[in-house]
Design a binder for these strands. Structure first.
Length: 706
DNA sequence: AGCACGCCGACT
DNA sequence: GTCGGCGTGCTC
């Protein structure tokens, strides 16, 4: 881009005032304006150029947009001039603008909101001079060549890499834990980078902080050409890494869902690891799915040869269905490279166990036996705290949160009651607030209670080295910071912990070498939860957790042990467990898809939610009712089912009442057409006033759960 | 969303 | 007599 003369900040140039530019600015889609505003500038600028423009009383970062403004822009003379052009940066690629435009349209948000949220926050605050300074400081960054040599791939992996290179559609890489998916990503990336000296690769992961070993592996392979992008970085780091990507210096970007927006001028491969993971779906602002946007982004770059790989041992049913239909190319990796046996499933029928037993006697014995042999056990319980409720057995009082429709969880170690939804904390009452009874009882079990129970039960038991058995706990309370998490994981790795109790956090990719037994203590809630995606998530969790057992084949052989996954359930006949016993994801998926087809649920139907938050539930429901009426006569209406507005399962969070309205259609275009016509009406409805007490509303396209 | 302007309660 | 609560309104 040519160095432009600094535009005069005040007066328009004489004849005609130069050209009119469409600039996207950070503004939600209120009322008539859609965040594409017009500004004057002495000469044309390429689309994607970053500029600073006046907006009201402020100066904001904006992006020069490819199209003309839609509505009636003010007369040229009335336009305000572009204040500053960030000439130090090349324009954002057209493909980036197209991705932003698509997402804004699809998720019903303004262009400006999506575009500016897609840029690093620190960039929004920089002017041209500040940017110059920033760039000067990092001018010495040199793109580095790959460092560590790649191990030679197995024939399976070789074939998978080949399939990725040749695929004319997204590849769904399906392979169990330990089948070597990561190696396929790395080999595919290496191939792309070797073929084109400027090519770039985007690797998305669900949570970078939980899996530092992946980052280490990527760095080991690609060295200083790797940058990371995730929420754990400081604003300055984030900007630095983003700039490296935008300027083409970073060859590999490894990041969480926000990284899908990274400007990558020569993007040639996108990897979405653990593509089924719900954290790819944003729950704030534009509720986008980074996985779906990754697929769309690769589609935009298809002519440039960009590929996309979605990897999982338990794909999202949407992805699996797409693969069965042939929209995605299914590539399968055969089982564990190390040759370790898959864990055997042991179902414990809790209906036949002693009443009130936290752990079935057989499970406890199995844990004791393994620990005494120097093996480790992992216990999964998806509730943190000591007990989910404190209750009065006399009058029936329960520890409800004053701000939420949830119980205050009893945390014994802190001697406090805490709400896991709004953070409210209170001291444990000495006596029942209602009747004065001093014998309040903790109801149900959390990880702290299980830990305590195990410490008592295993007290006196010795490991082979004569040391007493140690119990550890890994949950959001014990691992509040990444440092604490790493410390805990270190203890487990070094064998200082024999029995580890944890929430689903423990199932994520940690390589615990001496764990030979994994147990799900109480997974039944997910079988019949109101969230109909719960079984899918449970299957993924149990399969993934089971994959933690017996990862070290040498150790297993030396021990003569067999890896086992124990599940305590009152529903042992549930078909989910039959599929789990066979490690049969395809069977499970087929059964789930059949249910979904019969019930007209996704992926056989497309959904959107209108969510409303208000001071009172009545206000939220009333507004949704009004909103529903606004769909009359809109395009697509005949092909979209509107359900009645209902309170959310968690109605009240932090003093705010929440309700939602479900829209469903077999036709995605019909649903999209309706939403596109509806959204402006909803903005108008809000402005017109009849939304007394309404705090916020939002549309969630392709919602995950409710 | 910001950031104003704009009218009604407890503080220097 | 002011600081400040957040209710409408506007942003090329």
């Amino acid at each position: 881009m040519p160095e432009s003369p600094c535009p005069s900040p005040r007066e328009p140039s004489a004849a005609g005032g130069g050209v009119v530019l469409t600039v996207v600015v950070p503004m939600p889609a209120h009322g008539g304006l859609d965040a594409r505003l017009s500004y004057r500038h002495p000469h044309p600028l390429p689309s994607g150029t970053l500029v600073r423009v006046p907006l009201g009383r402020r100066t904001v970062l904006g992006v020069v947009w490819p199209e003309a403004p839609d509505g009636e822009a003010p007369a040229r003379e009335a336009l305000r001039p572009v204040q500053e052009v960030l000439t130090a940066l090349p324009p954002l690629p057209d493909e980036w603008c197209a991705l932003v435009a698509f997402a804004a349209r699809y998720y019903q948000r303004s262009l400006g909101e999506v575009a500016l949220a897609a840029l690093p926050p620190a960039l929004r605050a920089l002017d041209a001079a500040g940017l110059q300074r920033r760039l000067a400081r990092r001018a010495d960054m040199t793109p580095a060549a790959p460092t560590a040599p790649a191990p030679s791939p197995t024939p399976d992996q070789q074939a998978a890499v080949q399939a990725v290179a040749e695929a004319d559609r997204p590849v769904l890489l399906f392979g169990a834990t330990g089948s070597g998916k990561t190696e396929v990503y790395l080999q595919a990336a290496a191939q792309v980078l070797a073929r084109d000296a400027r090519a770039q690769v985007l690797m998305l992961v669900p949570e970078i902080n939980l899996t530092p070993q992946l980052e280490a592996r990527v760095r080991e392979r690609f060295g200083a050409a790797v940058v990371t992008l995730h929420s754990g970085l400081t604003p300055a780091q984030r900007l630095r890494h983003w700039l490296a990507a935008h300027l083409g210096q970073a060859r590999v970007v490894l990041g969480t869902r926000t990284a899908v927006w990274t400007s990558l001028p020569r993007l040639r491969l996108i990897v979405v690891d653990e593509e089924h993971d719900p954290s790819y779906k944003s729950q704030e602002g534009a509720r986008y799915s980074a996985r779906d946007l990754a697929v769309y982004r690769a589609h935009l770059l298809a002519a440039q040869g960009c590929r996309v790989v979605l990897g999982s041992a338990t794909p999202a049913l949407e992805s699996w269905h797409a693969a069965l239909q042939g929209r995605y190319r299914l590539v399968e990796l055969s089982d564990r490279i190390g040759g370790a046996a898959r864990p055997a499933l042991r179902l414990l029928d809790m209906r036949t166990q002693p009443r009130g037993a936290l752990l079935a006697p057989a499970l406890l014995e199995a844990i004791q036996a393994r620990v005494a042999r120097g093996e480790q056990a992992l216990l999964l319980l998806n509730r943190r705290g000591y007990a989910p409720v404190l209750a009065c057995p006399d009058c029936g009082w329960t520890s409800g949160c004053p701000h939420c429709s949830a119980y205050l969880v009893f945390h014994k170690d802190e001697r406090r009651l805490r709400c896991h939804h709004c953070g409210h904390a209170a001291a444990v009452p000495r006596a029942c607030p209602d009747c004065g009874n001093v014998d309040l009882a903790p109801l149900g079990r959390g990880t702290q209670r299980l830990e305590e129970h195990l410490e008592q039960t295993l007290a006196g038991l010795r490991r082979p080295d004569g040391a007493p058995v140690r119990v550890g706990r890994l949950d959001a309370d014990s691992a509040r910071t990444p440092q604490q998490l790493q410390a805990l994981l270190g203890q487990v790795h070094r064998g200082e912990v024999d029995v580890l109790v944890g929430t689903q956090m423990v199932a994520k990719g940690h390589d615990f070498r001496r764990i030979t037994l994994v147990a799900a203590v109480n997974p039944d809630a997910a079988l019949f939860a109101s969230d109909w995606r719960a079984p899918e998530r449970l299957f993924a969790l149990l399969l993934q957790a089971g994959g933690r057992a017996g990862r070290d084949a040498t150790f297993m052989a030396a021990q003569g042990s067999r890896a086992e996954l124990w599940v305590q359930t009152a529903y042992p006949q549930h078909p989910l467990f039959a599929a789990l016993a066979r490690h049969d994801y395809p069977g499970f998926a087929a059964q789930q898809l059949e249910e979904r087809r019969a019930a007209g649920m996704p992926p056989f139907a497309h959904q959107a939610l209108l969510r409303a938050e208000a001071r009172t539930l009545e206000a939220a429901l009333a507004w949704l009712q009004l909103a529903a009426q606004q769909t009359d006569g809109l395009p697509g209406r005949a092909h979209v089912t509107l359900y009645a507005p209902v309170p959310m399962t968690m109605v009240r969070v932090a003093g705010v009442e929440r309700a939602q309205l479900l829209l469903e259609s077999a036709s995605r275009p019909a649903l999209q057409a309706l939403l596109a016509a509806w959204t402006p009406r909803l903005h108008a409805l809000r402005r017109a006033g009849p939304a007394r007490g309404l705090l916020r509303w939002a549309i969630d396209v392709d919602p995950l759960g409710y």
